[in-house]
């Protein structure tokens, strides 16, 4: 998740103090891990430098801040560009798992077990997310669902790879 662009997007609603912005972020996206104040202020300073936002007014808001920030036209363009540019599907996890599986087979180690361990880890995470949905607000439920469906996709790959291990091992031995 791109924290900088998410914060910029939140600023697109209305001008805000860093303190209030952090709490907005936490309410929508920080269910599991709140954003550190330091990260918020560092990000704001960077965005001022890049002319994506500018400081307005010096009065005190809900927290100790004196500076209120508003998004610039460049910042608005940046947010729109981010929103409407699809992300490249992440292959980091799969490529790592793929490498581990191939190495395990090459070393004649237990690739089945390796995939089982990864599956168990994925399932544990799915249980966590499923528990987090109970009695949660719809916003949180949707966020958890997003995570659940992505983990499920990984699991399908693990299942298919598991089913093809014998064939894969043969091909590797003859490669």
């Amino acid at each position: 998740m791109n924290n900088s662009l998410t914060l910029l997007g939140l600023l697109g609603r209305e001008p805000s103090y860093g303190y209030d912005l952090k709490h907005s972020y936490d309410r929508y996206f920080g269910i599991e891990k709140a954003l550190a104040f330091g990260q918020v202020y560092a990000t704001l300073a960077r965005m001022v430098r890049d002319e994506l936002i500018r400081a307005v007014g010096e009065e005190t808001g809900g927290g100790p801040d004196r500076k209120k920030y508003e998004i610039t036209a460049t910042g608005q363009d940046k947010v729109r560009s981010w929103l409407f540019t699809p992300d490249t599907p992440s292959e980091t996890l799969q490529s790592d798992l793929f490498a581990k599986t191939v190495i395990a087979l090459l070393l004649e180690d237990d690739a089945d077990r390796l995939l089982d361990l990864q599956r168990a880890e994925h399932m544990a995470r799915m249980r966590e997310l499923t528990r987090a949905k109970k009695d949660a607000q719809l916003l949180q439920v949707l966020m958890c669902d997003h995570g659940l469906f992505h983990i499920e996709a990984d699991l399908r790959w693990i299942d298919l790879t598991t089913a093809r291990l014998t064939q894969l091992k043969k091909e590797l031995q003859h490669a």
Binding site: D110, R113, D116, A120, M123, M126, R127, L148, T162
Partner: peptide
Amino acid sequence: AAYADREVIVRDGAISAGY
């Protein structure tokens, strides 16, 4: 399965190694 407390995997009539 994520609603359960734990899972076991059955493959080819046996419980999979890790479970």
